[in-house]
Design a binder for these strands. Structure first.
Length: 415
DNA sequence: TCTGGGGTCCTAGGACCC
DNA sequence: TCTGGGGTCCTAGGACCC
């Protein structure tokens, strides 16, 4: 092997639930779930009963009658997640954060200062335990994919180092669903052809796997099965899309239902676009019907937009068109907006003939009014917080079932 | 009692241009 | 007069990840 095993994958164990047990000692050792109407996260004690995230609250209670629901300390999750990643950064700047509780790190350049990768992993685990009170599992391997699998195998609260000389032996004994990109559907398709382990997958011909899973997915999966993974750590990743969605329960497919919901989503999205100066050119909406089937509609504009009112109007138009195409659907259970085709972060100059957000020329009465309104709202929110002001029609759009906005923010990626 | 929310990537087909 | 094909952009749907 040419290179050493110097990629770390670090993953905080049952993160949200562990933070709650850290904050309240009475919760330690007990089955708990963050959330209420729906389980946002579960402790290991709750998982032992079959409780999973995204599970409806009533179902979780049925599986585990002693389950304790806690509302969640979202700002603490952010603080402690950041702090744990910062521990990794003390050993290398080559850190790629995947989510609030998970990151890759390349420590190949750090061994003279801090010792072997495995020693660095032990240091990180001990410091996260001592300084933050949290368990973090780490996998160490030559590639990202293998490090990620190793950290999964290491859980709970463990360390697994995969030696470059024995990596295929380690990999091939494991079930296929541990691989990145193998979910329930792919797992079932593979099982139909007798493949349940990564080793069995590796023995299949490329043609057979590509026929089964498609060209790109098949190749990718076979590469991973042979640990051919050339991906490097990416320290600065920017999002390619920004979206938001809102579950509605079961509501009539009528404008008085979806307009306020879309308005609220558009506010959140357009605010993020303006904050990073990354207007979007493509707007996609999704509507989920009562039977959980969902359909999408998209439009790509000639000029990029970031005004809340414009995004709202486009989304409302797309959704009403979509519903006209499905007259048989009388109720909807979710609406979503996604903004993509994002512009660069460079400041846009006021070119005289450039089309504005709303398709009008700059300086028109409509365009100027929208800009003034957005700028005023952005400024108030920057000073007094998001809740300080709302566009009239989006008030109370969330409803009692909604997940708190603070929870949503945790999953947002850097724009 | 009925199933969250924010993202990425891939496939297939059509429109359009050269 | 008929047949062809590649490339790009866009839309819709789906699988997957955390």
């Amino acid at each position: 092997m040419q290179s050493v095993a110097a990629i770390l994958h670090a993953d905080l164990d049952a993160f949200y639930a562990s933070v709650e047990q850290l904050l309240d000692p009475a919760l330690r050792g007990r089955p708990i779930a963050v959330g209420g109407g729906v389980v946002l996260a579960a402790s290991y004690e709750a998982k032992a009963f079959g409780v999973r995230s995204a599970m409806p609250g009533w179902q979780a209670r049925k599986l585990c009658p002693e389950l304790i629901f806690v509302p969640g300390h979202f700002s603490e999750y952010q603080r402690l997640g950041d702090a744990a990643i910062d521990v990794l950064r003390d050993y290398t700047p080559e850190v790629e954060r995947i989510s609030i509780d998970e990151a890759f790190a390349d420590v190949a350049g750090s061994t003279r200062l801090f010792g072997e990768p495995a020693a660095i992993a032990r240091l990180v685990r001990a410091r996260v335990r001592d300084e933050l009170g949290l368990a973090i599992s780490i996998g160490v391997a030559r590639t990202k994919h293998l490090a990620k699998i190793a950290s999964q195998v290491a859980k709970p609260d463990g360390l697994v180092v995969v030696d470059p000389d024995t990596e295929l032996g380690f990999l091939h004994g494991l079930p296929v669903e541990l691989m990145w990109g193998v979910g329930p559907v792919t797992k079932a398709r593979l099982a139909d052809t007798g493949v349940t382990t990564i080793g069995q997958l590796a023995q299949r011909s490329p043609e057979a796997v590509e026929r089964l899973l498609g060209r790109a997915s098949g190749r990718k999966l076979l590469d991973l099965a042979w640990n051919r993974d050339a991906r490097e750590i990416q320290t600065h990743r920017r999002a390619h899309s920004v979206g938001a969605q809102s579950a509605l329960g079961r509501r009539p497919a009528a404008e008085h239902v979806y307009r306020p919901a879309l308005q609220h989503l558009a506010e959140r999205i357009a605010g993020r676009l303006r904050a990073k100066d990354r207007p979007c050119r493509t707007v996609t909406v999704r509507v989920r019907f009562a039977d959980l089937r969902s359909v999408t509609r998209a439009v790509t504009l000639r000029a990029p937009i970031s005004a809340t009112a414009t995004l709202t109007e486009i989304a409302v138009d797309l959704v009403s068109g979509l519903l006209r195409d499905h007259p048989e659907e009388k109720s909807i259970s979710l609406v979503a907006i996604s903004a993509s085709d994002l512009g660069g972060a460079t400041l846009q100059l006021e070119l005289p003939f450039r089309l504005r957000d709303d398709g009008s020329r700059p300086g028109t009465r409509k365009g100027m009014a929208r800009e003034r309104a957005d700028r005023a709202v952005d400024a108030i929110r920057a000073r007094f917080g998001w809740e300080a002001v709302a566009y009239a029609s989006s008030q109370n759009a969330g409803g009692a079932r909604a997940v708190p906005d603070a929870f949503r923010s945790l999953a947002e990626k850097e724009l």
